[in-house]
Design a protein around this nucleic acid. Structure first.
Length: 199
DNA sequence: TCGCCGATTAAA
DNA sequence: TTAATCGGCGAA
């Protein structure tokens, strides 16, 4: 089911607030052949501009992280471990260097379209992790800097917000390199008991 | 230019 | 528990 698109104002807010508010929202991908997939966002992580040593942008802009310092609502996509991609949406104002990582989503429409990019044994393995999500959505670095507010290829819709008592917060995954304060920060959030959350 | 290492994943 | 795999980034 289609709902209104999220506007730039949605992303032009505190990054933790955006990460929390993105739960239950809809990520929409229109593929080059015109087919459309809709997925409910179930897991996110906030990478904040306040000296967060887990944040790629924490040491200032580089060629790779430049989109994070641009306008909110644009994609920041990077390659990880030489094999996978991670999709982030830029938050807060120009020059801040912040984004939300989309870690997992529940397919609602176009499941068969997602499976054609990533055949899978168990249904929950399709999009329950940031690398797997990008494979299913066919997102790579060509999307970095892409404006997801005006896009006809990749955008967000309102969906339905999740009540507080259904939201869990934990430390973020895979950031052992970060300072203890940042390792412990509860900046990963997900929908409780949702089977599509990463394992 | 050199060398290290990662916001992950699947296999052992 | 560990290998895969390569581009980004800091150091020289």
């Amino acid at each position: 089911m289609q709902t209104a698109r999220l506007t730039r104002d949605f992303f032009d807010r505190d990054t933790v607030v955006v990460a929390r508010d993105l739960l239950g929202r809809i990520l929409v991908r229109r593929f080059p052949d015109g087919t459309v997939a809709r997925l409910r966002i179930v897991e996110t992580e906030a990478y904040t501009p306040d000296g967060d040593t887990a944040n790629h942008a924490s040491r200032g802009p580089t060629p790779r992280t430049a989109p994070m310092f641009g306008p909110p609502g644009h994609a920041y996509v990077y390659m990880i471990y030489g094999k996978y991609h991670c999709f982030n949406i830029v938050t807060e104002g120009v020059g801040q260097g912040a984004a939300v990582l989309i870690r997992a989503a529940e397919p609602l429409e176009g499941v068969e379209i997602l499976e054609r990019h990533r055949p899978v044994r168990r249904r929950y393995d399709l999009t329950n992790g940031p690398g797997k999500l990008c494979i299913a959505l066919n997102i790579d670095r060509s999307f970095t800097g892409h404006d997801c507010i005006t896009s006809r290829h990749l955008w967000f819709e309102e969906g339905a917000p999740i009540p507080d008592d259904h939201v869990a917060r934990t430390p973020r995954i895979g950031i052992d390199y970060a300072a203890e304060h940042d390792r412990l920060a509860l900046k990963r959030m997900f929908i409780k008991s949702n089977p599509w959350v990463s394992k």
